[in-house]
Simulated assay, not measured.
Amino acid sequence: MSLTLISAGPADDGRWYAGDYSFSDELGGFRILSIRGSGTTADPIEIEEELNSATPVTLVIRAARQTQLQSAFHLSIVTLNRSGLAWIGFDFELQEILGKPSDFYDGLSFGQIQPNAAFISSNRFDHFESQFERYDRLRFDEGHVDPLDRSKFGFFVTDVTPVPEFYLVEDPRIPST
């Protein structure tokens, strides 16, 4: 049975499955609402989620089977802003080790080997910046997301030295006071 067919809700282990990966909100601070897709350009893995605060949250990503480590997939994140605050930017950061910024040597990136700006998108922010070294981060700005609005982001994740588990830190940015 294809893992894509069982992505209507979380499995018994609390993980959501799509393509060759599982995704989890187990570290808290947000909630996954649905997941679908296979990870290709035509059918990216789309994660719908809601953030209840404007603090960073971490999505746990695992290979669905240890014997099936892939090296790339297209990802789309649709986020409902339930924080009560407007967001003026949004950052995504990849981490191979939780809490440690990804570096050049871990092979994990937002398509750093063959960068393609066409794979990076947002419906709410007009500008993005790829920050590759010292960490792998995408920073979106020049826009906003009001409370109870949705934002959609798209990007390509590559790992030239695939590992069975890694992390995507999501950080909504709010105006400073």
Rank of each mutant, 00 (worst) to 15 (best):
M1L: 11
P44E: 06
L69K: 04
G89M: 03
E49A: 15
D13H: 04
I113C: 02
F90Y: 14
D43T: 01
W16A: 02
E96F: 01
D25E: 03
T177C: 08
R65N: 08
A64F: 06
L148D: 15
D136F: 03
L168T: 00
R124L: 10
I174V: 15
I47M: 10
P44G: 02
S130M: 12
I77A: 05
D25M: 02
Y105T: 10
Q112H: 12
F110L: 06
A54Q: 03
V160P: 04
Q95N: 05
Q112W: 10
R62I: 07
G89P: 04
E50H: 01
I32V: 13
A64D: 09
L59K: 13
A11L: 15
I47E: 03
L80T: 11
P115Q: 07
E49V: 13
P101S: 07
D43I: 00
L59T: 10
S53H: 06
E133M: 02
D159I: 03
I174M: 15
S24A: 09
T41Q: 14
D106A: 12
N81H: 03
W16M: 03
D126C: 05
V78H: 09
E46W: 07
P115A: 08
F104Y: 12
F23L: 10
Q114V: 12
L69T: 03
G9I: 07
V163T: 15
T4M: 10
T161G: 09
R65M: 07
D20R: 14
P162F: 08
E26H: 01
T177V: 14
D91I: 02
I113N: 06
L94K: 00
F104I: 12
S176W: 11
Y135I: 00
L80S: 08
F156S: 11
D103Y: 09
N116F: 08
L85E: 13
D149H: 08
E93K: 10
Y105G: 07
F125D: 07
G19F: 02
Y105E: 09
I97R: 14
T40R: 02
S109I: 00
V60H: 07
L148G: 07
P56S: 03
S102Q: 09
T58Y: 04
A42W: 01
G39Q: 01
L5M: 11
V169F: 04
T177N: 14
S38L: 07
S176Q: 15
S102L: 07
